[in-house]
């Protein structure tokens, strides 16, 4: 049975009848379990192109389904449902609804890149997982993952100041992911830093926390980076037809 038909025999598609006679044949009870027909009519024929438009997904078209990525996968060893090969298959077939069934585990890729080194076609499955997770976020299927929040906090800071000030990164990351800053381990770490670090270094760190140091003459570079990021985001939004999605959503609300 081809992979794409497996969805037909999910538990919700199985039915039995207490009393049923068809053409004079008694088909009552679980000896005559029926598999309900399900017409797949929600193919997204652009799905592969959409994933390929996001960073990391560019080479997805190379896949020939050998399964090396899933075989090598760290997460698959713990959770059999985490199956990069299968998702690449669904994406290439355009089976969006099937893909969405796994939307809550796709982001769990730990980026160990074992698949990257196993793949005979250089599909770069780790990148495809990242692109797929971003696709789910940008299409509104999932909340932003913690790592996306971290990337954003990090990037915003670089664009603004040209420097990374760790305590600010931490504070913002914790706040955006809804975590309390005063975690026991954090308090312990700060205590030990206060005890163990040289006074001069502590002072500099303290100052940096307050004034947020900036790279000299950063504004031009900052503008250029921001322009590039905006350009890329716009391109991706177009590839993913995000504007149309928003429009449809508005019409749905109005109706």
């Amino acid at each position: 049975m081809p992979i794409h038909e497996k969805s037909l025999i999910r538990p919700e598609n199985l039915t039995t009848h207490e009393e049923l006679t068809l053409d004079g044949v008694d088909v009552s009870g679980h000896w005559s379990t029926f598999i309900e027909t399900r017409v797949v009519n929600d193919y997204n024929e652009n799905l592969q192109e959409e994933i390929a438009a996001l960073p990391g997904g560019e080479e997805i078209h190379r896949c020939w389904q050998c399964g090396s990525c899933t075989n090598a996968c760290t997460v698959n060893a713990i959770n059999e449902d985490f199956n990069p090969r299968y998702w690449i298959y669904l994406i290439r077939m355009g089976m969006e609804s099937e893909l969405l069934r796994d939307k809550d585990i796709i982001w769990q890729c730990v980026s160990c890149n074992k698949c990257t080194y196993a793949c005979p076609r250089d599909v770069f499955p780790e990148g495809v997982m990242k692109a797929t997770a971003h696709w789910l976020e940008r299409k509104g299927h999932t909340e932003k993952s913690p790592s996306t929040h971290f990337d954003e906090v990090f990037t915003e800071q670089i664009v603004k100041t040209g420097k990374i000030e760790e305590s600010r990164t931490m504070r913002r990351f914790f706040s955006r992911t809804g975590q309390a800053l005063a975690q026991p381990w954090m308090i312990e770490m700060v205590k030990r830093m206060l005890r163990g670090l040289p006074i001069g270094l502590l002072t500099r760190m303290g100052l940096a926390t307050l004034v947020a140091p900036k790279t000299n003459d950063w504004s031009k570079a900052s503008a250029a980076i921001q322009e590039y990021i905006d350009e890329q985001h716009e391109k991706q939004a177009q590839a993913l037809s995000l504007a149309e999605l928003v429009e449809t959503a508005k019409q749905d609300v109005a109706a």
Partner: peptide
Amino acid sequence: VKGEDTLVKRP
């Protein structure tokens, strides 16, 4: 020998 039977999606 470890792998995945890709046609039936089983490790």
